[in-house]
Design a protein around this nucleic acid. Structure first.
Length: 558
RNA sequence: UGGGGAGUAGUCUAGUGGUAGGACACAUGACUCUGGAUCAUGGCGCGGGGGUUCGAGUCCUCCCUCCCCAGCCA
C-alpha cells in the first residue's frame, strides 16, 4: 500500500508550522481541473498532493472544475475527470463544485470593484490591448477608456452582460498599474464577451470571467486554506492577492510547486489533444498515453500511481522524472500481485521425438512465487510444444544460455529437453526443432543433480489458445520530445515502433476465462493485462511493462 | 535588458551550522526451475568565487546557469 511514513515536503512543513501556531486550524484544499482534456499523470501528482494533504491533516479537499472558457470545455471531460479521480481512490464527497456556479457572485464582485473605481470597461481591441501592455522591459500605456466614471462603467458592463455588444468589442479590466514590472498587474482582463453556450450554464451568459479573475475568488468562496498550484502561477499571486484585498474576502494561502515532467512523453494537454485528434494514438485512453485512462488501460493500478506520486516528492525545482522510475514502480506492484502464466509471443514449434505420440500430462505450476496463497494450477504437456523463437540460436554466442543444437535446457515445470535437429525451409528459415526429453526430469529437476543454464517458457501446441498481444514501447524516441532540431516539432519525435501488434500468440489454456482488466505476468516476458477490445473469439493483451531483461542488455552489448 | 522562481551523482529527493543519506538508473558479485524477484558491493554529487565560523550544502556577498511571464488560455 501507500507509504505510511510521515511525508516531508516543503508544503507539509508549512502546514505543520501553521498548525503549531493555530491548533484549531482546519485545512481545506481543492483540485481545480479545467474540463478541456483528460487527466494525466501530472494531474495525478496534484490530486495525490491535494487530497493527500486533506487526508494527512484531517481536512477536506474539494473537486472544482475551473470551467470559465466555454470554447474549450465539454462535459465529456467532466465525466472522465470524475471517473479518473475516483479510480485513483480519492473522494470529494458532496463537494463537487464548478467555477460556473460562481458566475453570478463573480459578477457582483466585479460590480463592487467598478463602484470602487477599481475596474473599468475598455473598448480597445485585443491587438490594441496587447500593444498598450508594453513589454517585459518597457512599461505599458494606460487605456484611453481607463478613466470612465463608475456610473458609465456600471452601465456598459450591464450592457455587456445583456448581449448588446459583439464578441471582442469590449472587456472589463482591473484598474491596477500599467507600469508594474509584473505584467499580470497591468490592468488584466476580467471579463470577455463570448457569445458561446457553456456546458453547464447554457446560454445564460455571453460574458465570461477570465481564469485570473475567477480562480482566487472561487478558492475564497470555498474557504480554501491552501491553494496549491504550479510554479507558473507564482507571479499571478500578487494579482490574486490584490483582488482578494479589494474585495475584503477570505484569503487562502497560495503555495506553488513544480509540475511533473516525465522522460519520453509529453504532459501538455494541448499536445495530447493533438495526438488524439490527428490519430497519432487511438484515443485519450490509448495505453501509450500518459493519461490516467491510458495508464489504466495499460494495466497500471491506482496503488502504483499513488506510490509513484508519493515517491517522486514535491519541491519547487523544475524536475523531469525518469520513465524508468515509473516502470520500476509498476513492476514492484505487479510483481507482488500478478498471476504467473506462460504465453509464447513468437512461437517456434518443437517436436519431442521420444515423447509418446498420444500422451498428455498435467504438470503443476506455481501461480505466484511472491504469494504462497495464490496456489498452483495444472498445465497440459504433450509431444508438440511451442517455445519462444528468441529462446533458440543455432550459433549462439558464449553468453547465450538458452536452447541451441546439442544443448540441454529446462522447460518450466516440465522436463529437460535437448535439441537434436533443426528443420529449415529452402531459404534457410527455421521451421521447427526436434528435441528429446529426459523422462526422469519430470517437474523440472534431474535426479542425478545435473544442472541446466536456462529455463524456458512453453505451451502445448494441442492445448494452447491463440491471442493478440499489443506490445507498447515509449511514445517518443527522445528523452525530451520537446527538444527538436530546425523546423521539426514534437510529433517528429514520435516513436514509430511504440506499438507492435502480434496476433498469433500462443497462450496456456487456463487463460481462456481471462476477463478485461485481469493482469498476468507472462513468465520471462512481462506484465500483461486483458484489454477491453477482447471478444469471445479473441483475447487481447496489452503489455503493461516488460520484465527486466539481463539478456537484452548483453545482446545489445555484444 | 524588467519581474518572479530554481540550482545536492545520469534522474528524483532528504538535509534547517557538526562525518552528505535514500530511491531509480548504471556497474560488479551472490542466489535462483522466470537471464524475473531477492541480497550484497560500488561511484571524482552540494553551479562558481570570496567571506563569517573551531566547523558551511546550510549564514553573508558577488557571479554563473536554467525555468516562467508580454492570451480577451488555464
Amino acid at each position: 500500500m501507500d507509504d505510511i511514513k510521515e511525508k516531508t515536503d516543503f508544503i507539509r512543513d508549512i502546514i505543520r508550522q501553521d498548525l503549531q501556531e493555530d491548533h484549531g486550524k482546519k485545512i481545506h484544499t481543492r483540485f481545480p481541473p479545467e474540463p478541456n482534456g483528460y487527466l494525466h499523470i501530472g494531474h495525478a501528482k496534484s490530486i495525490c498532493l491535494n487530497f493527500g494533504l486533506a487526508q494527512d491533516f484531517n481536512g477536506k479537499c474539494n473537486l472544482r472544475f475551473d470551467d470559465t472558457n466555454p470554447t474549450k470545455e465539454e462535459s465529456e471531460y467532466v465525466d472522465s475527470i470524475k471517473t479518473d479521480i475516483c479510480w485513483l481512490g480519492f473522494d470529494w464527497g458532496q463537494r463537487e463544485y464548478y467555477a460556473s456556479d460562481y458566475f453570478e457572485k463573480l459578477y457582483e464582485f466585479a460590480v463592487l470593484l467598478i463602484k470602487k473605481g477599481k475596474a473599468y470597461v475598455c473598448d480597445l481591441s485585443a491587438e490594441e490591448i496587447r500593444q498598450y501592455r508594453g513589454t517585459l522591459t518597457t512599461p505599458g500605456k494606460e487605456s484611453p477608456f481607463r478613466n470612465r466614471s463608475a456610473e458609465e462603467n456600471l452601465r456598459l458592463f450591464k450592457e455587456m452582460r445583456d448581449g448588446k455588444y459583439p464578441d471582442g468589442s469590449k472587456v472589463l479590466r482591473a484598474k491596477i498599474d500599467m507600469s508594474s514590472p509584473n505584467i499580470n498587474m497591468r490592468d488584466p482582463v476580467m471579463y470577455r464577451i463570448l457569445n458561446k453556450s457553456h456546458h453547464r450554464t447554457g446560454n445564460k451568459w455571453c460574458i465570461y470571467p477570465t481564469y485570473d479573475w475567477t480562480h482566487g475568488q472561487s478558492d475564497s468562496i470555498e474557504n480554501i486554506t491552501y491553494s496549491i498550484c504550479t510554479l507558473e502561477f507564482e507571479d499571478h499571486r500578487p494579482l490574486y492577492d490584490w483582488f482578494i484585498e479589494q474585495l475584503g474576502i477570505h484569503h487562502p494561502r497560495q503555495i506553488e510547486f513544480a509540475r511533473l515532467n516525465l522522460t519520453y512523453t509529453v504532459m501538455s494537454k494541448r499536445m495530447l489533444l493533438e495526438l488524439v485528434e490527428k490519430n497519432y494514438v487511438s484515443s485519450w485512453d490509448d495505453p501509450r498515453m500518459p493519461t490516467i485512462s491510458g495508464m489504466r488501460r495499460r494495466g497500471y493500478s491506482p496503488e502504483a500511481i499513488r506510490n509513484f506520486c508519493s515517491q517522486i516528492g514535491v519541491a519547487k525545482a523544475d524536475s523531469t522524472v525518469d520513465m524508468a522510475f515509473l516502470e520500476h514502480i509498476i513492476r514492484e506492484d505487479l510483481n507482488k500481485k500478478a498471476m504467473r502464466v506462460m504465453g509464447v509471443l513468437n512461437p517456434l514449434k518443437i517436436i519431442i521425438d521420444n515423447y509418446p505420440e498420444d500422451q498428455e500430462e498435467e504438470l503443476t505450476a506455481i501461480n505466484n512465487p511472491e504469494d504462497p496463497d495464490a496456489g498452483t494450477r495444472k498445465i497440459p504437456f504433450s509431444k508438440i510444444i511451442y517455445i519462444e523463437k528468441d529462446d533458440f540460436m543455432e550459433n549462439p554466442p558464449s553468453k547465450f544460455f538458452r536452447l541451441s543444437p546439442g544443448r540441454e535446457v529446462r522447460l518450466r515445470y516440465a522436463y529437460f529437453i535437448k535439441c537434436i535437429d533443426i528443420i529449415k525451409d529452402k531459404d534457410g528459415t527455421i521451421l521447427e526443432l526436434h528435441c528429446t526429453y529426459d523422462p526422469s526430469t519430470k517437474g523440472g529437476d534431474a535426479p542425478d543433480g545435473r544442472k541446466v543454464k536456462a529455463t524456458l517458457h512453453w505451451v502445448s501446441a494441442g492445448h494452447c489458445i491463440q491471442a493478440e498481444a499489443r506490445l507498447y514501447d515509449k511514445l517518443f524516441i527522445k528523452e525530451n520530445p520537446l527538444k527538436t532540431d530546425g523546423d521539426c516539432n514534437f510529433k517528429d519525435n514520435l516513436n514509430p515502433d511504440s506499438l507492435r501488434i502480434i496476433d498469433s500468440c500462443k497462450i496456456e489454456p487456463s487463460l481462456s476465462s481471462a476477463k478485461p482488466g485481469n493482469i498476468y505476468q507472462f513468465e520471462r516476458l512481462g506484465y500483461f493485462c486483458v484489454d477491453p477490445d477482447t471478444t469471445n473469439d479473441k483475447i487481447v493483451f496489452n503489455r503493461t511493462a516488460t520484465l527486466k531483461d539481463e539478456w537484452a542488455k548483453i545482446k545489445t552489448s555484444i
